[in-house]
Write a protein that binds this DNA or RNA. Structure first.
Lengths: 342, 342
DNA sequence: CTGAAAGCGCTTACAG
DNA sequence: CTGAAAGCGCTTACAG
């Protein structure tokens, strides 16, 4: 079997009977070549199945074609981040870009130096030394969720309106008979959980409800969540609705609710702040906020592309909003009312 | 702030007072340059902080520096695969290689053509059309777990001895008083679950135990697992030990066991075939097989590096075994015996 | 409107 | 043992 040498620009130029330069101009839609020639070159390229060599292109343009994606360290446990990463890869492939996932380096070790054209940081948190190193070289940065103020300005930012979704959930609780909503939040800071917590506080203030906030440890999440649930349900004037922010652990809320004789979906409404496939199949199915992680990832990469293509750096950062929505299921049906189903 | 032009080989050569070629030879430890010169060049490179430009190198060598990693479609839900991907990235970065995660293309759409130097396919299954397309160009392939026979031969294969781990678990069950072990396996074929199922069958045959195998759907995993558990515990001559293969759903086994008045870790032993952080923190903590996914991923990439570096393609495929081990926890302690703890 | 030439940063045959 | 030169595949000033 003959090894088929990849088709080069020279091959196309030869077949079209023009110079390499002319072929390049024709193919990149650059002015300075007649319509007839352009057509001939295009036909030749199509016939030979020509695809420009990205390595050569990058060398010429002093680019790498690589985008570093920096994920939180808990990424390996959370389906959300994997989905988001796949969204970024989807979009990157279409643009001829490559994605490099940056694993957290073993503690203290310096980052392996990576040449890249840009950095996408998802859920950046303050005081992250890795992030600091990463941002130092001055590459363009796009952040998924807000970049903490202590770091330098971003070229782009993709966000979702978590506060609005949280309010929608709380209103829904109220409509379905709940008077004492609570939230269980991860101890660890993140812009995302912070935003929801704040929205919850505001809602409580507006509705004259007592704040019921329980922080849980990410290590030992199960036990921690169970303890939090017990606390919320065991006290006098107990919670009658719970939003659990930590992915997965909402299942523990369901389990421990039974101990207190509560029936989820009737006298205890429960919702998760992050949807995941499992929540559709539990008994009862669990209401959750669908964050559309794949779309979110894709949008981050799209903004990065725009930033990279932008010849006029302009002033402000590019901002983009990814819509999210609450998926209502049985766990918030409420007592004796027809539940919305999805 | 002056934009610092990256240091090139020419800069190093100039500082060392030699030609570019000589500098290249010195830096790549190639014979044909005096020890003195080599030292001078090295010093110059160190002083300037020279790092070869991978793009130029790749262009020269007609490589891309890219490895495509193909993961199963359920990858986004399973922490295992994300960990494995990070392991591959760890190793790749050290070798100056880049990893591209290949997302499943929207149904039917052709793969975006990706130039790459090699392909790593994790848990390949028979009859996968994407895999077929991916293998068509003839790039070197390394598989994580066995490549089904219908596909072309691999250049490397990384595996673990799942059968041995399963036997260890079953022996452990027996030592701790279980007489009727069962397994819950995913419906979907995979070499991994197949290997464990076979080991289980063999063990049953050797020990004169009745086979208790329940298949569960991946869609609707929770309900499906609960139903399977009920079946195993509700029948006459019920199971007294269960291995759950599906990541995460072992928690459903625990939950439903309570319905039948069983106490996990005492009169019902339970273990997961894939460890995950949550299993350490449940009550009781759950025995599981630690697959060392990060090491597994790293090893896949290491084999790929060897394959790529190999000038003499040789005959057989490179095979590598990644050790796995059973982590004993409270869920298999058994009645009235001191449990091993981890 | 088009062609010939230079150059991105590297490696490697080829002369000296 | 070392230097000068060619070339990987592309793009883009620069002449014609």
């Amino acid at each position: 079997m003959p090894v088929k040498r990849p088709v080069t620009l020279q091959d196309v130029a030869d077949l079209a009977g023009v110079s390499r330069g002319a072929a390049s101009f024709a193919l990149t839609d650059r002015t300075g070549v007649s319509a007839a020639t352009r057509e001939r070159v295009r036909a030749a390229a199509a016939e030979l199945g020509y695809r420009p060599n990205p390595t050569a292109r990058n060398l010429r343009a002093a680019r790498t074609g690589i985008i570093v994606v920096y994920l939180p360290s808990i990424a390996t446990t959370l389906g959300y981040y994997t989905e988001a990463a796949f969204g970024m890869v989807d979009e990157a492939l279409e643009a001829g870009l490559l994605v490099t996932l940056l694993p957290r380096p073993a503690n203290g070790r310096p980052l392996p130096r990576i040449d890249a054209d840009g950095i996408i940081a998802i859920d950046p948190v303050p005081g992250d030394p890795v992030l600091e190193q990463l941002l130092a070289p001055g590459l363009p940065v796009v952040s998924g969720e807000a970049m903490p103020a202590e770091y330098r300005a971003v070229a782009g930012e993709v966000r979702s309106d978590h506060a609005a979704a949280a309010r929608e959930l709380l209103d829904h609780f109220a409509e379905h008979g709940a008077r004492a909503p609570a939230i269980i939040v991860p101890e660890m800071f993140s812009g995302w959980s912070d935003e929801i917590t704040q929205a919850y506080r505001d809602w409580c203030a507006e509705h004259g409800a007592r704040e019921r906030i329980e922080a849980v440890a990410v290590e030992g999440l199960t036990d921690s969540t169970i303890a939090a649930t017990r606390k919320l349900l065991g006290e006098t004037d107990p919670a009658d609705a719970i939003i659990s922010l930590t992915e997965g652990s909402v299942l523990n809320v369901i389990t421990s609710a039974t101990e207190y004789g509560r029936t989820v979906g009737e006298d205890l409404l429960v919702a998760a702040a992050v949807d995941s496939p499992a929540l559709r199949y539990t008994e009862p199915s669990i209401t959750a906020i669908d964050l559309h992680p794949r779309t979110f990832g894709r949008e981050c990469m799209r903004v990065m592309r725009e930033v990279l293509d932008d010849r006029s750096p302009g002033e402000g950062a590019r901002r983009r909003d990814v819509p999210i929505d609450v998926v209502f299921r049985d766990s918030t049906r409420g007592r004796g009312r027809a539940g919305e189903r999805v």
